[in-house]
Design a protein around this nucleic acid. Structure first.
Length: 571
RNA sequence: CGGGGCGUAGCGUAGUGGCUAGCGCGCCUGCUUUGGGAGCAGGAGACCGUGGGUUCGAAUCCCUCCGCCCCGACCA
Protein backbone atom coordinates (compact mmCIF):
# COMPACT_ATOMS: atom_id res chain seq x y z
CA UNK A 1 0.00 0.00 0.00
CA UNK A 2 1.22 3.43 -0.88
CA UNK A 3 0.76 5.98 1.87
CA UNK A 4 0.83 9.68 1.18
CA UNK A 5 2.20 10.21 4.69
CA UNK A 6 5.45 8.50 3.75
CA UNK A 7 5.58 8.66 -0.05
CA UNK A 8 8.59 10.37 -1.58
CA UNK A 9 6.39 13.01 -3.16
CA UNK A 10 6.05 16.76 -3.12
CA UNK A 11 3.49 18.12 -5.50
CA UNK A 12 4.05 21.59 -6.85
CA UNK A 13 1.50 24.33 -7.06
CA UNK A 14 3.25 26.21 -9.87
CA UNK A 15 4.29 25.01 -13.28
CA UNK A 16 8.04 24.60 -13.54
CA UNK A 17 9.52 27.49 -15.50
CA UNK A 18 11.39 25.28 -17.95
CA UNK A 19 8.33 23.30 -19.02
CA UNK A 20 6.26 24.14 -22.05
CA UNK A 21 4.10 21.15 -22.90
CA UNK A 22 1.34 19.80 -20.65
CA UNK A 23 2.84 16.38 -20.02
CA UNK A 24 6.08 17.94 -18.86
CA UNK A 25 4.39 20.46 -16.57
CA UNK A 26 2.04 17.93 -15.04
CA UNK A 27 4.52 15.09 -14.63
CA UNK A 28 6.77 17.49 -12.74
CA UNK A 29 3.96 19.07 -10.71
CA UNK A 30 2.49 15.71 -9.74
CA UNK A 31 5.90 14.49 -8.61
CA UNK A 32 6.37 11.81 -11.26
CA UNK A 33 9.67 13.01 -12.71
CA UNK A 34 12.46 15.47 -12.00
CA UNK A 35 14.89 16.96 -14.46
CA UNK A 36 18.56 16.13 -13.95
CA UNK A 37 20.01 17.71 -17.08
CA UNK A 38 18.60 18.73 -20.45
CA UNK A 39 16.72 15.70 -21.76
CA UNK A 40 17.63 13.55 -18.75
CA UNK A 41 15.07 12.75 -16.08
CA UNK A 42 14.72 10.84 -12.83
CA UNK A 43 11.60 8.88 -12.00
CA UNK A 44 10.06 9.28 -8.57
CA UNK A 45 7.96 6.51 -7.00
CA UNK A 46 4.63 7.42 -8.60
CA UNK A 47 6.15 8.05 -11.99
CA UNK A 48 8.19 4.91 -11.87
CA UNK A 49 5.12 2.82 -11.12
CA UNK A 50 3.37 4.14 -14.20
CA UNK A 51 6.52 3.75 -16.24
CA UNK A 52 6.85 0.10 -15.14
CA UNK A 53 3.24 -0.67 -15.96
CA UNK A 54 3.77 0.50 -19.49
CA UNK A 55 6.96 -1.49 -19.72
CA UNK A 56 5.18 -4.58 -18.48
CA UNK A 57 2.31 -4.28 -20.91
CA UNK A 58 4.77 -4.01 -23.75
CA UNK A 59 6.70 -6.98 -22.42
CA UNK A 60 3.55 -9.08 -22.09
CA UNK A 61 2.50 -8.37 -25.64
CA UNK A 62 5.94 -9.08 -27.05
CA UNK A 63 6.10 -12.35 -25.17
CA UNK A 64 2.58 -13.24 -26.25
CA UNK A 65 3.63 -12.77 -29.87
CA UNK A 66 6.42 -15.26 -29.33
CA UNK A 67 9.30 -12.80 -29.29
CA UNK A 68 12.13 -13.53 -26.89
CA UNK A 69 13.50 -10.96 -24.49
CA UNK A 70 17.23 -10.41 -24.26
CA UNK A 71 19.32 -7.67 -22.72
CA UNK A 72 22.41 -5.94 -23.98
CA UNK A 73 24.75 -3.58 -22.20
CA UNK A 74 24.15 0.13 -22.66
CA UNK A 75 27.92 0.62 -22.60
CA UNK A 76 29.38 -0.83 -25.75
CA UNK A 77 32.77 -1.17 -27.43
CA UNK A 78 33.48 0.69 -30.63
CA UNK A 79 34.30 -2.29 -32.86
CA UNK A 80 30.85 -3.47 -33.97
CA UNK A 81 29.86 0.08 -34.73
CA UNK A 82 32.99 0.52 -36.82
CA UNK A 83 32.06 -2.56 -38.82
CA UNK A 84 28.79 -0.95 -39.87
CA UNK A 85 30.43 2.47 -40.20
CA UNK A 86 28.09 3.98 -37.66
CA UNK A 87 30.92 5.06 -35.38
CA UNK A 88 31.62 7.62 -38.08
CA UNK A 89 28.11 8.04 -39.51
CA UNK A 90 26.36 8.72 -36.25
CA UNK A 91 28.41 11.84 -35.71
CA UNK A 92 27.95 14.06 -32.67
CA UNK A 93 24.69 12.37 -31.69
CA UNK A 94 26.68 9.48 -30.29
CA UNK A 95 27.78 9.63 -26.67
CA UNK A 96 31.40 8.50 -26.77
CA UNK A 97 33.77 7.76 -23.94
CA UNK A 98 37.02 5.97 -23.22
CA UNK A 99 38.05 3.50 -20.60
CA UNK A 100 41.23 3.84 -18.52
CA UNK A 101 43.23 2.19 -21.27
CA UNK A 102 41.98 4.77 -23.74
CA UNK A 103 39.83 2.29 -25.63
CA UNK A 104 36.80 3.84 -27.30
CA UNK A 105 33.34 3.05 -26.05
CA UNK A 106 29.88 4.39 -26.73
CA UNK A 107 26.54 4.52 -25.02
CA UNK A 108 24.19 2.62 -27.30
CA UNK A 109 21.85 4.85 -29.35
CA UNK A 110 20.24 1.75 -30.87
CA UNK A 111 21.36 -1.85 -30.97
CA UNK A 112 21.12 -3.31 -34.48
CA UNK A 113 24.77 -4.37 -34.33
CA UNK A 114 24.44 -6.20 -31.03
CA UNK A 115 21.34 -8.09 -32.08
CA UNK A 116 22.84 -9.07 -35.38
CA UNK A 117 26.01 -10.30 -33.73
CA UNK A 118 24.12 -12.21 -31.08
CA UNK A 119 22.24 -14.17 -33.71
CA UNK A 120 25.40 -14.66 -35.71
CA UNK A 121 27.09 -16.09 -32.65
CA UNK A 122 24.40 -18.66 -31.93
CA UNK A 123 22.58 -19.60 -35.13
CA UNK A 124 23.80 -20.76 -38.50
CA UNK A 125 20.98 -22.67 -40.19
CA UNK A 126 17.82 -21.69 -42.05
CA UNK A 127 16.09 -24.10 -39.70
CA UNK A 128 16.75 -21.70 -36.82
CA UNK A 129 14.73 -18.96 -38.48
CA UNK A 130 12.48 -17.07 -38.27
CA UNK A 131 13.51 -15.46 -35.02
CA UNK A 132 12.34 -12.31 -33.29
CA UNK A 133 14.10 -10.97 -30.23
CA UNK A 134 13.71 -7.78 -28.26
CA UNK A 135 15.02 -5.81 -25.36
CA UNK A 136 13.84 -2.95 -23.19
CA UNK A 137 16.83 -0.73 -22.81
CA UNK A 138 18.03 2.72 -22.01
CA UNK A 139 19.23 4.46 -25.13
CA UNK A 140 21.52 7.42 -25.37
CA UNK A 141 21.49 10.03 -28.07
CA UNK A 142 23.10 13.38 -27.73
CA UNK A 143 20.25 15.10 -29.52
CA UNK A 144 21.04 18.54 -30.89
CA UNK A 145 17.97 19.75 -29.11
CA UNK A 146 16.18 17.71 -26.52
CA UNK A 147 12.71 19.09 -26.06
CA UNK A 148 9.24 18.79 -24.60
CA UNK A 149 10.30 17.18 -21.33
CA UNK A 150 10.45 13.43 -21.58
CA UNK A 151 8.97 13.32 -25.08
CA UNK A 152 12.40 13.83 -26.59
CA UNK A 153 15.24 13.05 -24.24
CA UNK A 154 18.91 12.30 -24.59
CA UNK A 155 18.50 9.31 -22.34
CA UNK A 156 15.30 7.37 -22.81
CA UNK A 157 13.95 3.87 -22.69
CA UNK A 158 13.05 2.06 -25.85
CA UNK A 159 11.75 -1.38 -26.58
CA UNK A 160 13.50 -2.48 -29.72
CA UNK A 161 12.88 -5.73 -31.56
CA UNK A 162 14.55 -7.30 -34.52
CA UNK A 163 13.33 -10.05 -36.75
CA UNK A 164 15.54 -12.42 -38.70
CA UNK A 165 14.35 -14.26 -41.78
CA UNK A 166 15.83 -16.21 -44.64
CA UNK A 167 13.87 -14.42 -47.34
CA UNK A 168 11.62 -11.47 -48.11
CA UNK A 169 8.42 -13.45 -47.73
CA UNK A 170 9.50 -14.41 -44.23
CA UNK A 171 10.34 -10.80 -43.41
CA UNK A 172 6.85 -9.79 -44.53
CA UNK A 173 5.34 -12.31 -42.11
CA UNK A 174 7.55 -11.19 -39.22
CA UNK A 175 6.76 -7.57 -39.99
CA UNK A 176 3.05 -8.23 -39.89
CA UNK A 177 3.36 -10.12 -36.61
CA UNK A 178 5.05 -7.12 -35.08
CA UNK A 179 2.45 -4.81 -36.52
CA UNK A 180 -0.27 -6.90 -34.90
CA UNK A 181 1.58 -6.97 -31.58
CA UNK A 182 1.94 -3.19 -31.69
CA UNK A 183 -1.75 -2.73 -32.33
CA UNK A 184 -2.55 -4.83 -29.26
CA UNK A 185 0.04 -3.05 -27.16
CA UNK A 186 -1.08 0.49 -27.97
CA UNK A 187 -4.72 -0.47 -27.57
CA UNK A 188 -3.97 -1.72 -24.06
CA UNK A 189 -2.03 1.40 -23.26
CA UNK A 190 -5.17 3.38 -23.98
CA UNK A 191 -3.51 5.44 -26.68
CA UNK A 192 -5.25 6.90 -29.69
CA UNK A 193 -3.00 6.45 -32.66
CA UNK A 194 -2.79 6.22 -36.43
CA UNK A 195 -0.64 3.85 -38.39
CA UNK A 196 1.03 5.94 -40.98
CA UNK A 197 3.16 4.98 -43.95
CA UNK A 198 6.50 6.52 -43.31
CA UNK A 199 8.31 6.11 -46.60
CA UNK A 200 7.00 6.12 -50.11
CA UNK A 201 9.14 3.21 -51.15
CA UNK A 202 11.36 5.39 -53.30
CA UNK A 203 14.19 4.48 -51.00
CA UNK A 204 15.11 0.91 -51.77
CA UNK A 205 11.55 -0.32 -51.44
CA UNK A 206 11.79 -0.93 -47.72
CA UNK A 207 8.43 -0.84 -46.06
CA UNK A 208 8.01 1.34 -43.02
CA UNK A 209 5.16 2.47 -40.86
CA UNK A 210 4.95 4.80 -37.91
CA UNK A 211 2.52 4.64 -35.02
CA UNK A 212 1.56 8.22 -34.35
CA UNK A 213 -0.37 9.41 -31.30
CA UNK A 214 -2.27 12.55 -32.36
CA UNK A 215 -1.71 15.46 -30.05
CA UNK A 216 -1.27 19.18 -30.69
CA UNK A 217 2.14 19.33 -29.05
CA UNK A 218 3.52 16.45 -31.12
CA UNK A 219 6.52 17.16 -33.27
CA UNK A 220 5.54 15.02 -36.25
CA UNK A 221 3.20 16.27 -38.95
CA UNK A 222 1.12 13.81 -40.92
CA UNK A 223 -1.81 13.77 -43.28
CA UNK A 224 -5.02 11.95 -42.62
CA UNK A 225 -7.98 11.26 -44.87
CA UNK A 226 -11.24 11.16 -42.97
CA UNK A 227 -12.90 9.62 -45.98
CA UNK A 228 -10.95 6.40 -46.38
CA UNK A 229 -8.57 6.40 -43.43
CA UNK A 230 -5.43 6.89 -45.48
CA UNK A 231 -2.67 8.27 -43.28
CA UNK A 232 0.85 9.21 -44.19
CA UNK A 233 3.78 11.08 -42.88
CA UNK A 234 4.04 14.31 -44.87
CA UNK A 235 7.26 13.02 -46.36
CA UNK A 236 5.42 10.01 -47.73
CA UNK A 237 2.29 11.78 -48.95
CA UNK A 238 1.78 11.07 -52.64
CA UNK A 239 0.51 13.75 -54.98
CA UNK A 240 -2.15 12.70 -57.46
CA UNK A 241 -2.37 14.51 -60.77
CA UNK A 242 -4.51 14.42 -63.85
CA UNK A 243 -3.22 14.76 -67.43
CA UNK A 244 -3.31 18.32 -68.74
CA UNK A 245 -6.56 19.01 -70.56
CA UNK A 246 -6.42 22.77 -71.10
CA UNK A 247 -5.92 24.67 -74.29
CA UNK A 248 -2.72 24.72 -76.18
CA UNK A 249 -0.97 28.05 -76.07
CA UNK A 250 1.23 29.95 -78.44
CA UNK A 251 4.94 30.48 -78.25
CA UNK A 252 6.70 31.92 -75.26
CA UNK A 253 6.19 35.64 -74.77
CA UNK A 254 8.70 37.58 -72.74
CA UNK A 255 7.21 40.50 -70.84
CA UNK A 256 8.63 43.37 -68.82
CA UNK A 257 7.97 42.77 -65.17
CA UNK A 258 10.18 45.15 -63.22
CA UNK A 259 10.58 44.70 -59.46
CA UNK A 260 8.79 41.38 -59.21
CA UNK A 261 11.22 39.07 -57.46
CA UNK A 262 8.40 37.39 -55.49
CA UNK A 263 5.40 35.44 -56.67
CA UNK A 264 2.95 37.85 -55.06
CA UNK A 265 4.48 40.91 -56.69
CA UNK A 266 4.57 39.11 -60.03
CA UNK A 267 0.91 38.10 -59.92
CA UNK A 268 -0.19 41.58 -58.96
CA UNK A 269 1.80 43.29 -61.71
CA UNK A 270 0.80 40.74 -64.28
CA UNK A 271 -2.87 41.20 -63.63
CA UNK A 272 -2.75 45.01 -63.53
CA UNK A 273 -0.26 45.74 -66.27
CA UNK A 274 -1.25 43.03 -68.74
CA UNK A 275 -4.89 42.77 -67.61
CA UNK A 276 -4.43 39.09 -67.11
CA UNK A 277 -6.27 37.02 -64.53
CA UNK A 278 -3.70 34.69 -63.08
CA UNK A 279 -3.16 33.47 -59.56
CA UNK A 280 -0.06 32.21 -57.81
CA UNK A 281 -0.99 28.69 -58.87
CA UNK A 282 -0.49 29.69 -62.52
CA UNK A 283 3.10 30.66 -61.93
CA UNK A 284 6.02 28.33 -61.72
CA UNK A 285 8.55 28.68 -58.97
CA UNK A 286 12.11 27.65 -59.75
CA UNK A 287 13.77 26.78 -56.50
CA UNK A 288 17.51 26.44 -56.86
CA UNK A 289 19.37 24.09 -54.57
CA UNK A 290 22.75 22.55 -54.21
CA UNK A 291 22.52 18.75 -54.22
CA UNK A 292 25.86 17.38 -53.13
CA UNK A 293 27.30 20.68 -54.35
CA UNK A 294 25.76 20.33 -57.82
CA UNK A 295 23.12 22.88 -58.81
CA UNK A 296 19.60 21.63 -59.35
CA UNK A 297 16.30 23.35 -59.98
CA UNK A 298 13.07 22.16 -58.47
CA UNK A 299 9.84 23.34 -60.07
CA UNK A 300 6.77 23.80 -57.95
CA UNK A 301 3.55 25.72 -58.59
CA UNK A 302 3.89 29.28 -57.33
CA UNK A 303 1.32 28.85 -54.58
CA UNK A 304 3.45 26.27 -52.80
CA UNK A 305 6.77 26.25 -51.00
CA UNK A 306 9.34 23.55 -51.45
CA UNK A 307 9.29 21.30 -48.40
CA UNK A 308 12.94 20.44 -47.89
CA UNK A 309 12.13 17.45 -45.72
CA UNK A 310 9.87 15.98 -48.36
CA UNK A 311 12.33 16.70 -51.11
CA UNK A 312 15.19 15.21 -49.12
CA UNK A 313 13.19 12.07 -48.35
CA UNK A 314 12.11 11.55 -51.93
CA UNK A 315 15.04 12.63 -54.07
CA UNK A 316 17.23 9.68 -54.89
CA UNK A 317 20.98 9.56 -54.85
CA UNK A 318 21.44 12.84 -53.00
CA UNK A 319 22.97 13.09 -49.57
CA UNK A 320 23.37 16.77 -48.89
CA UNK A 321 20.72 19.26 -49.91
CA UNK A 322 20.68 22.99 -49.29
CA UNK A 323 19.11 26.09 -50.75
CA UNK A 324 21.11 28.36 -53.06
CA UNK A 325 22.94 31.11 -51.29
CA UNK A 326 24.22 34.37 -52.72
CA UNK A 327 27.65 32.82 -53.08
CA UNK A 328 26.13 30.16 -55.32
CA UNK A 329 24.44 32.72 -57.52
CA UNK A 330 27.84 34.36 -57.87
CA UNK A 331 29.22 31.09 -59.21
CA UNK A 332 26.46 30.84 -61.81
CA UNK A 333 26.12 34.35 -63.18
CA UNK A 334 23.55 33.36 -65.77
CA UNK A 335 21.04 32.56 -63.06
CA UNK A 336 19.19 35.75 -62.29
CA UNK A 337 17.91 35.65 -58.75
CA UNK A 338 14.14 36.07 -58.72
CA UNK A 339 13.79 35.64 -62.49
CA UNK A 340 14.84 32.06 -63.09
CA UNK A 341 12.90 29.97 -65.59
CA UNK A 342 13.28 26.34 -66.63
CA UNK A 343 13.58 27.10 -70.36
CA UNK A 344 17.35 27.38 -70.30
CA UNK A 345 18.12 24.79 -67.67
CA UNK A 346 20.15 22.66 -70.02
CA UNK A 347 22.25 25.55 -71.07
CA UNK A 348 22.83 26.49 -67.45
CA UNK A 349 23.83 22.97 -66.50
CA UNK A 350 20.95 22.56 -64.07
CA UNK A 351 19.36 19.23 -63.45
CA UNK A 352 15.62 19.86 -63.65
CA UNK A 353 13.35 18.28 -61.07
CA UNK A 354 9.64 18.99 -60.80
CA UNK A 355 6.72 18.44 -58.54
CA UNK A 356 4.21 16.01 -60.13
CA UNK A 357 1.76 18.88 -60.61
CA UNK A 358 3.95 20.21 -63.38
CA UNK A 359 2.41 17.82 -65.89
CA UNK A 360 3.23 17.41 -69.56
CA UNK A 361 1.49 20.10 -71.59
CA UNK A 362 0.81 22.51 -68.75
CA UNK A 363 1.91 26.08 -69.32
CA UNK A 364 3.13 28.60 -66.83
CA UNK A 365 4.18 32.11 -66.09
CA UNK A 366 7.75 31.97 -64.98
CA UNK A 367 11.07 33.76 -65.01
CA UNK A 368 12.65 34.69 -68.33
CA UNK A 369 16.20 34.33 -67.04
CA UNK A 370 16.64 38.06 -67.51
CA UNK A 371 16.40 40.70 -64.85
CA UNK A 372 12.94 42.26 -64.60
CA UNK A 373 11.48 39.96 -67.24
CA UNK A 374 9.07 37.04 -67.00
CA UNK A 375 7.80 34.70 -69.67
CA UNK A 376 4.32 33.33 -70.27
CA UNK A 377 3.11 30.26 -72.15
CA UNK A 378 6.17 28.34 -70.97
CA UNK A 379 5.01 24.83 -71.65
CA UNK A 380 6.16 21.65 -69.99
CA UNK A 381 7.44 19.13 -72.51
CA UNK A 382 7.80 21.74 -75.21
CA UNK A 383 9.85 24.56 -73.72
CA UNK A 384 11.47 22.56 -70.98
CA UNK A 385 11.89 18.88 -70.21
CA UNK A 386 11.56 17.62 -66.65
CA UNK A 387 14.39 15.20 -66.03
CA UNK A 388 12.89 13.74 -62.90
CA UNK A 389 9.63 14.12 -61.01
CA UNK A 390 9.95 14.29 -57.24
CA UNK A 391 7.61 14.95 -54.33
CA UNK A 392 8.92 18.34 -53.38
CA UNK A 393 6.04 20.73 -52.73
CA UNK A 394 4.63 21.27 -49.29
CA UNK A 395 1.53 19.33 -48.38
CA UNK A 396 -1.49 21.46 -47.56
CA UNK A 397 -4.71 20.65 -45.80
CA UNK A 398 -7.30 20.06 -48.50
CA UNK A 399 -4.92 18.30 -50.87
CA UNK A 400 -6.38 15.23 -52.52
CA UNK A 401 -6.10 11.87 -50.83
CA UNK A 402 -4.08 9.56 -53.09
CA UNK A 403 -6.50 6.72 -52.34
CA UNK A 404 -9.93 8.26 -52.57
CA UNK A 405 -9.27 11.84 -53.76
CA UNK A 406 -11.13 13.43 -50.85
CA UNK A 407 -9.54 16.37 -49.07
CA UNK A 408 -7.01 15.38 -46.43
CA UNK A 409 -6.43 17.08 -43.09
CA UNK A 410 -3.07 17.77 -41.52
CA UNK A 411 -2.48 16.90 -37.90
CA UNK A 412 0.34 16.73 -35.39
CA UNK A 413 1.36 13.68 -33.41
CA UNK A 414 3.96 12.05 -31.21
CA UNK A 415 5.74 9.10 -32.77
CA UNK A 416 5.28 6.26 -30.32
CA UNK A 417 6.33 3.34 -32.48
CA UNK A 418 8.09 2.66 -35.70
CA UNK A 419 8.28 -0.60 -37.61
CA UNK A 420 10.28 -1.18 -40.70
CA UNK A 421 11.85 -3.70 -42.94
CA UNK A 422 15.56 -3.21 -42.55
CA UNK A 423 16.64 -5.69 -45.13
CA UNK A 424 20.15 -7.02 -45.33
CA UNK A 425 22.21 -3.96 -44.51
CA UNK A 426 23.39 -5.03 -41.07
CA UNK A 427 23.49 -8.74 -41.79
CA UNK A 428 25.63 -7.95 -44.78
CA UNK A 429 28.15 -5.73 -43.08
CA UNK A 430 28.41 -7.95 -40.02
CA UNK A 431 28.39 -11.18 -41.97
CA UNK A 432 25.21 -12.75 -40.65
CA UNK A 433 24.42 -15.66 -42.94
CA UNK A 434 22.72 -19.00 -42.51
CA UNK A 435 23.02 -22.13 -44.62
CA UNK A 436 20.00 -22.83 -46.80
CA UNK A 437 18.62 -26.19 -47.85
CA UNK A 438 21.34 -26.60 -50.44
CA UNK A 439 24.01 -25.84 -47.89
CA UNK A 440 24.76 -22.45 -49.38
CA UNK A 441 25.15 -19.37 -47.15
CA UNK A 442 22.43 -16.77 -47.55
CA UNK A 443 22.42 -13.31 -46.00
CA UNK A 444 19.66 -12.97 -43.44
CA UNK A 445 17.04 -10.24 -43.88
CA UNK A 446 15.99 -8.23 -40.87
CA UNK A 447 13.18 -6.08 -39.57
CA UNK A 448 13.48 -3.45 -36.89
CA UNK A 449 10.70 -2.40 -34.56
CA UNK A 450 10.75 0.25 -31.82
CA UNK A 451 8.47 1.57 -29.12
CA UNK A 452 9.41 4.56 -27.02
CA UNK A 453 8.67 3.33 -23.52
CA UNK A 454 9.44 6.45 -21.54
CA UNK A 455 7.98 8.56 -24.31
CA UNK A 456 4.74 6.58 -24.02
CA UNK A 457 4.32 7.89 -20.47
CA UNK A 458 4.36 11.43 -21.83
CA UNK A 459 2.24 10.60 -24.86
CA UNK A 460 -0.48 9.08 -22.68
CA UNK A 461 -0.31 12.04 -20.32
CA UNK A 462 -0.68 14.38 -23.30
CA UNK A 463 -3.72 12.57 -24.62
CA UNK A 464 -5.52 12.18 -21.31
CA UNK A 465 -4.83 15.17 -19.06
CA UNK A 466 -7.49 17.74 -18.25
CA UNK A 467 -7.62 21.10 -16.48
CA UNK A 468 -7.33 19.43 -13.08
CA UNK A 469 -4.26 17.39 -13.80
CA UNK A 470 -3.17 13.99 -15.02
CA UNK A 471 -5.84 11.45 -15.79
CA UNK A 472 -4.48 7.95 -16.33
CA UNK A 473 -6.17 5.05 -18.07
CA UNK A 474 -6.67 2.35 -15.47
CA UNK A 475 -4.08 -0.08 -16.79
CA UNK A 476 -1.21 2.30 -16.34
CA UNK A 477 -2.19 4.51 -13.40
CA UNK A 478 0.28 4.38 -10.50
CA UNK A 479 -2.49 2.70 -8.49
CA UNK A 480 -6.07 1.58 -9.07
CA UNK A 481 -7.68 3.51 -6.26
CA UNK A 482 -6.82 6.69 -4.41
CA UNK A 483 -8.41 6.81 -0.97
CA UNK A 484 -8.67 10.16 0.78
CA UNK A 485 -9.41 10.26 4.49
CA UNK A 486 -10.61 13.62 5.81
CA UNK A 487 -11.48 15.10 9.18
CA UNK A 488 -9.66 15.25 12.48
CA UNK A 489 -11.09 12.22 14.20
CA UNK A 490 -9.50 8.80 13.98
CA UNK A 491 -12.63 7.18 12.66
CA UNK A 492 -12.43 8.16 8.95
CA UNK A 493 -8.78 7.21 8.91
CA UNK A 494 -9.52 3.84 10.41
CA UNK A 495 -12.30 3.26 7.90
CA UNK A 496 -10.08 4.33 5.02
CA UNK A 497 -7.40 1.98 6.22
CA UNK A 498 -9.88 -0.89 6.30
CA UNK A 499 -11.20 -0.13 2.82
CA UNK A 500 -7.64 -0.05 1.55
CA UNK A 501 -6.97 -3.46 3.03
CA UNK A 502 -10.19 -4.90 1.62
CA UNK A 503 -9.36 -3.61 -1.85
CA UNK A 504 -5.85 -4.96 -1.66
CA UNK A 505 -7.26 -8.33 -0.72
CA UNK A 506 -9.09 -8.18 -4.04
CA UNK A 507 -5.82 -7.55 -5.80
CA UNK A 508 -6.17 -3.82 -6.30
CA UNK A 509 -3.40 -1.32 -5.76
CA UNK A 510 -4.18 1.49 -3.40
CA UNK A 511 -2.75 4.91 -2.70
CA UNK A 512 -4.01 5.97 0.71
CA UNK A 513 -3.92 9.63 1.70
CA UNK A 514 -3.45 9.17 5.42
CA UNK A 515 -1.97 12.59 6.10
CA UNK A 516 -3.47 13.96 9.30
CA UNK A 517 -2.17 17.49 8.96
CA UNK A 518 -3.18 18.23 5.35
CA UNK A 519 -6.55 19.86 4.78
CA UNK A 520 -9.26 18.16 2.77
CA UNK A 521 -8.81 20.68 -0.03
CA UNK A 522 -5.12 19.90 -0.37
CA UNK A 523 -5.84 16.20 -0.56
CA UNK A 524 -8.51 16.64 -3.22
CA UNK A 525 -6.22 18.78 -5.34
CA UNK A 526 -3.43 16.28 -5.03
CA UNK A 527 -5.69 13.39 -5.95
CA UNK A 528 -6.85 15.23 -9.05
CA UNK A 529 -3.32 16.18 -10.03
CA UNK A 530 -2.00 12.64 -9.66
CA UNK A 531 -4.84 11.27 -11.74
CA UNK A 532 -5.60 7.83 -10.36
CA UNK A 533 -8.91 6.78 -11.99
CA UNK A 534 -10.95 6.02 -8.86
CA UNK A 535 -11.03 8.26 -5.83
CA UNK A 536 -12.74 7.25 -2.60
CA UNK A 537 -13.42 9.98 -0.09
CA UNK A 538 -13.95 8.96 3.49
CA UNK A 539 -15.29 11.79 5.63
CA UNK A 540 -18.49 13.74 5.85
CA UNK A 541 -20.88 11.08 4.63
CA UNK A 542 -19.47 8.59 7.10
CA UNK A 543 -22.18 9.87 9.43
CA UNK A 544 -24.64 8.00 7.21
CA UNK A 545 -22.33 5.02 6.98
CA UNK A 546 -21.34 5.99 3.46
CA UNK A 547 -18.30 7.07 1.48
CA UNK A 548 -18.07 8.97 -1.75
CA UNK A 549 -16.67 7.37 -4.88
CA UNK A 550 -15.51 9.66 -7.64
CA UNK A 551 -14.46 8.91 -11.15
CA UNK A 552 -11.44 11.03 -11.99
CA UNK A 553 -12.19 11.22 -15.69
CA UNK A 554 -15.93 11.88 -15.71
CA UNK A 555 -16.00 13.64 -12.32
CA UNK A 556 -19.13 11.62 -11.52
CA UNK A 557 -19.79 11.03 -7.83
CA UNK A 558 -21.77 8.45 -5.97
CA UNK A 559 -22.37 7.76 -2.30
CA UNK A 560 -22.01 4.13 -1.37
CA UNK A 561 -22.64 2.37 1.91
CA UNK A 562 -19.52 0.91 3.46
CA UNK A 563 -20.54 -2.66 2.84
CA UNK A 564 -20.76 -2.03 -0.92
CA UNK A 565 -17.56 -0.12 -1.46
CA UNK A 566 -15.37 -3.01 -2.55
CA UNK A 567 -18.10 -4.44 -4.73
CA UNK A 568 -18.69 -1.07 -6.43
CA UNK A 569 -15.03 -0.51 -7.10
CA UNK A 570 -14.29 -3.99 -8.33
CA UNK A 571 -17.04 -4.14 -10.89
C1' C B 1 25.30 25.22 -35.53
C1' G B 2 22.01 30.10 -36.55
C1' G B 3 18.18 33.31 -34.09
C1' G B 4 15.61 34.69 -29.43
C1' G B 5 15.07 34.42 -24.09
C1' C B 6 16.63 33.10 -19.15
C1' G B 7 19.96 31.78 -14.72
C1' U B 8 18.42 35.04 -7.28
C1' A B 9 16.35 29.27 -1.26
C1' G B 10 13.38 22.73 -2.99
C1' C B 11 9.55 25.40 -6.54
C1' G B 12 7.53 30.18 -8.59
C1' U B 13 9.53 35.03 -8.46
C1' A B 14 10.85 40.78 -6.93
C1' G B 15 15.01 43.50 -6.91
C1' U B 16 18.68 48.38 -13.31
C1' G B 17 25.21 50.89 -8.64
C1' G B 18 24.15 52.23 -2.01
C1' C B 19 22.08 49.69 4.71
C1' U B 20 21.42 42.91 6.94
C1' A B 21 18.78 40.39 -0.92
C1' G B 22 12.43 40.91 -0.57
C1' C B 23 7.77 38.11 -1.42
C1' G B 24 4.47 33.64 -2.34
C1' C B 25 4.37 28.20 -2.17
C1' G B 26 6.79 24.32 0.30
C1' C B 27 9.69 23.00 4.99
C1' C B 28 10.33 23.26 10.89
C1' U B 29 7.94 24.76 16.07
C1' G B 30 3.49 26.22 18.71
C1' C B 31 -1.70 27.38 18.97
C1' U B 32 -6.22 27.55 16.18
C1' U B 33 -8.46 25.07 11.91
C1' U B 34 -10.18 20.37 8.99
C1' G B 35 -15.13 18.85 2.33
C1' G B 36 -11.78 22.39 -1.98
C1' G B 37 -4.47 24.26 -2.38
C1' A B 38 -6.59 27.21 5.90
C1' G B 39 -5.33 31.33 10.02
C1' C B 40 -1.98 33.54 13.55
C1' A B 41 2.87 33.72 15.78
C1' G B 42 7.86 32.25 15.59
C1' G B 43 11.87 29.90 12.67
C1' A B 44 15.45 27.27 9.19
C1' G B 45 16.94 27.67 4.31
C1' A B 46 20.63 31.86 -1.03
C1' C B 47 28.99 31.42 -2.08
C1' C B 48 22.41 36.03 -6.45
C1' G B 49 25.33 29.93 -12.40
C1' U B 50 31.26 30.35 -12.98
C1' G B 51 35.76 33.13 -13.52
C1' G B 52 37.71 37.78 -14.36
C1' G B 53 37.20 43.20 -14.77
C1' U B 54 35.25 48.40 -13.71
C1' U B 55 34.06 50.96 -8.93
C1' C B 56 34.89 53.68 -2.45
C1' G B 57 30.83 50.12 -3.19
C1' A B 58 28.25 44.98 -7.97
C1' A B 59 22.65 40.33 -7.83
C1' U B 60 22.64 45.06 -10.62
C1' C B 61 27.67 47.64 -15.41
C1' C B 62 31.57 45.08 -18.95
C1' C B 63 34.08 40.54 -20.72
C1' U B 64 34.72 35.00 -20.43
C1' C B 65 32.96 30.39 -19.69
C1' C B 66 28.99 27.06 -18.10
C1' G B 67 23.95 25.67 -17.79
C1' C B 68 18.66 25.90 -19.14
C1' C B 69 14.22 27.05 -22.34
C1' C B 70 11.94 28.34 -27.16
C1' C B 71 12.13 28.75 -32.86
C1' G B 72 15.01 26.80 -36.90
C1' A B 73 18.73 23.23 -38.86
C1' C B 74 19.07 18.04 -37.26
C1' C B 75 16.49 13.55 -35.44
C1' A B 76 17.28 4.69 -36.32
Amino acid sequence: MLRMSTLLLRTLRDDPADAEVASHKLLVRAGFVRRIAAGIYSWLPLGYRTYRKIENIIREEMDAAGFQEVHFPALLPKDPYEATNRWAEYGPDLFRLQDRKKNDFLLGPTHEEMFTLMVKGEFSSYKDLPLSIYQIQTKFRDEPRPRSGIIRGREFVMKDSYSFDVDDAGLEVSYNKHRQAYVKTFDRLGLKYNIVSAMSGAMGGSKSEEFLAPCPTGEDTYVLCNGCGYAANVEAMVTITAPYKGDKVGAIEVLDTPNTPTIDSLVELFNSKYSANISAADTLKNVLLMADEKPISVLVPGDREVDLKRLGANISGVKDLRLFEDADFAKFPKLVKGYVGPQDAKEFGLKLYADPRVVEGSHWVTGANKKDKHAKNVTCGRDFIVEEYVEAAEVKAGDSCPKCAKAVVIDRAIEIGHIFQLGRKYAQSLGLTVLDKEGKPVVVTMGSYGIGVSRAVAAIAEQTYDELGLCWPSEIAPADVHIVATGKEDHPFDVAEQIAKDLEAKGLEVLLDDRREASAGVKFKDAELIGIPKIIIVGKSLADGKVEIRDRKSSSKQEVVLADVVKTIVQ
